[in-house]
Design a protein around this nucleic acid. Structure first.
Length: 569
RNA sequence: GCGGCGGUAGCUCAGUGGAUUAGAGCAUUGGUCUACGGAACCAAGGGUCGGGGGUUCGAAUCCCUCUCGCCGCACCA
């Protein structure tokens, strides 16, 4: 069953097509009608015709179509299209029957590898990881919703020179007490202590250097200690993911170290293809179009002059692995905007090497910073980075207080957590990801306005209607008489297109906007149209259907954002 | 210097070629309803869409230029 928009598009495309083959009808949702087709102006220009006449000709062809109740030409050649009531009702009935609310599965299911969250071992997760985690998780859910095969990848920082000092610090503390410290989640404290010793103590520094050599040389005892650090960190990350209700599992972890034994092959392959240039002792690839401060070609350093590997090599190895081993059709990197140039270079080199081809796409899904109310980087009052766990806990405390003030009596722990996570995630997701966004507790936790709690509450209140049914009424055949009913219906029918557009642009914010508009349409409907108090059984049933579809749409939409929709709150 | 992203109402943001009134939320002001759990509702005020130029029948939207803010620009990831 194709969506209503697709039916409208097909009909208008056919009509325009008989004037000019393959013409784009440019069909849009309209504020003047249900839809408008703007194709006439562009086509008239290429044909040297009068756009209004052309629009009239096309409109004439559409007028017989039972899909439309009214077809009008306006202005320079806009074609305004109003759907017939029967078409709208048929669309709603189909939506109600559909398990997916009419959301189409992708015509060709893709394997989509989504790289997100990516915290560092023995370092606290902070607000900087929040956006990657929340946006990445929503993208996973959106792609899965449309029938794609999603492979989550948590590219944690688990390798590199810092591990020398971290392992030595672990030994200094004694393994047992180190583990218990890490287990309590004080990763930052652990890291800072190691760093302090490293900076102050030459002897410690030397031990750390030797430890790095042992680690890279594959010394078994060193590797064992390293694994302790990694395992404890992952255990801690998991508690954060569970609190956030994010779908990342331990099995999704592919840390930097995972690619260690592939790095030589990466360089060999690049060299065999004649791409490697040795510059200042480092093995580099110079992708065209990248320059440094002085306008000279900028290298991607694949192997450092000390023969060590940096993250460029790891990222290239990961691309190869995801294509060859995972079978990726699409790879998303949900990483902050500062890494824009890095990924542009990685993708350029992977393309030069022939790994990225027309059939495999890699996209840097970049995002802006989280800012505090002062519009500066979000920090604590003492100027430290905000720990993610502390942030989530504060959110829960605040939402609990707000719920108590509202006289909440239900399972307060559960609801407070659902509301807090909904608030935090929604605030993050609802702003265009490219922009910086301002973190503001009062705004995000409000039950009014474009917020997570507002949408959760909207859902819960609609569900409450069903709990209050006393006369056995149930959703039934839909009729649309009031304008608010029709407006709500049109809003409901827009869901599949919104999901598609959110996926195409990797922008959950489009779904947020839609859900908020839907909730507003519902309010207008609910204000104007009595449901349980409707005059007759048929009207009650019809309106209950609209309520049910709205609740389902909110639930499915929030779920795609990773936000719970409680039945009561 | 080069490059990326951003600059839309007092505040937070939608809107990336289309229509005479550029939208929403919050805040402000006025009004309405015996409140299907008021997430009330209706209405009003509030904008040179950073400035300028261009393309077009039509520009917040495309192009050029200037400006302001944030970020990046070889061996840390």
């Amino acid at each position: 069953m194709s969506s209503l928009y697709e039916q409208v598009f097909a009909a208008t495309a056919a009509a325009f097509g008989s004037v000019q083959e393959g013409a784009d009808p440019v069909v849009r949702v309209s504020d003047r009608a249900d839809y408008q087709a703007n194709g006439a102006m562009a086509i008239a220009k290429t044909l040297g015709r009068n756009p209004r006449d052309l629009a009239e000709e096309v409109a004439g062809m559409l007028r017989g179509n039972p899909l439309f109740a009214k077809v009008e030409v306006a202005g320079p050649g806009f074609i305004n299209l109003d759907l017939s009531a029967s078409a709208v009702i048929a669309g709603l009935e189909a939506m109600a029957q559909s398990h997916t609310l009419g959301i189409d599965r992708a015509p060709k299911s893709k394997t989509v590898v989504i790289d997100y969250s990516s915290p560092n071992v023995a370092k606290e997760m902070h607000v900087g990881h929040l956006r990657s985690t929340v946006i990445g998780d929503s993208l996973c859910r959106l792609f899965e919703l449309t029938g794609n095969h999603v492979v989550r990848r948590n590219h944690i920082g688990d390798w590199g020179t810092p591990f020398g000092m971290l392992i030595e610090h672990l030994l200094d503390l004694g393994e047992e007490s180190a583990v218990s410290e890490l287990g309590m989640g004080d990763l930052d404290g652990f890291y800072r202590q190691a760093r302090t010793k490293f900076d102050a103590d030459g002897h410690f520094r030397e031990r750390s250097r030797q430890r790095v050599v042992a680690l890279q040389g594959g010394d078994e005892e060193t590797l064992r200690l390293w694994r302790v650090l990694v395992a404890e960190s992952i255990r801690y990350f998991d508690t954060v993911y569970q609190a956030l209700n994010v779908g990342l599992q331990e099995g999704d972890v592919r840390g930097e170290s995972f690619y260690n034994d592939q790095l030589d092959a990466v360089v060999r392959d690049l060299d065999a293809k004649g791409l490697i240039v040795v510059s200042d002792g480092a093995s580099c690839v110079f992708p065209p179009g990248f320059t440094n401060r002085d306008g000279e070609p900028l290298p991607l350093i694949v192997r450092k002059s000390d023969e060590g590997y940096g993250y460029a090599a790891t990222d290239l190895a990961a691309i190869r692995d995801r294509i060859d081993d995972v079978g990726a059709d699409l790879m998303l990197y949900v990483v902050g905007a500062p890494q824009e140039q890095h990924f542009a270079m990685i993708f350029a080199v992977a393309t030069m090497a022939g790994w990225l081809t027309e059939s495999v796409e890699a996209v840097h899904v970049s995002f802006g910073n989280v800012l505090g109310p002062d519009r500066k980087m979000f920090k604590t009052r003492s100027g430290e980075t905000v720990k993610l766990k502390a942030l989530l806990d504060e959110g829960i405390e605040r939402s609990r207080a707000a719920l108590i003030e509202r006289g909440e009596r239900l399972d307060i722990d559960l609801i407070a957590s659902q509301v807090a996570m909904g608030a935090i995630k929604y605030a993050d997701l609802s702003t265009d990801r490219q922009r910086d966004y301002i973190f503001d507790w009062d705004r995000m936790l409000a039950f009014e306005g474009n917020t997570g709690p507002y949408l959760q509450y909207a859902h819960a209140r609609i569900r409450s209607i069903f709990r209050r049914i006393e006369d056995g009424s149930a959703p039934g055949p839909i009729s649309l008489t009031e304008p608010q009913e029709r407006a709500l219906a049109m809003q409901l029918l827009a869901l599949p297109g919104v999901i598609q557009s959110a996926i195409e642009t990797y922008s959950p914010s489009k779904l947020c906007t839609y859900l908020f508009d839907l909730a507003q349409s519902f309010t207008a409907f609910y204000e104007a149209c009595p449901v349980l108090k409707a005059q007759d059984q048929a009207l009650r049933s019809s309106r209950l259907s609209l309520c049910e579809l709205t609740a389902s749409t909110l639930r499915v939409g929030l779920s795609a954002l990773g936000i719970d929709a409680p039945e009561q709150m």
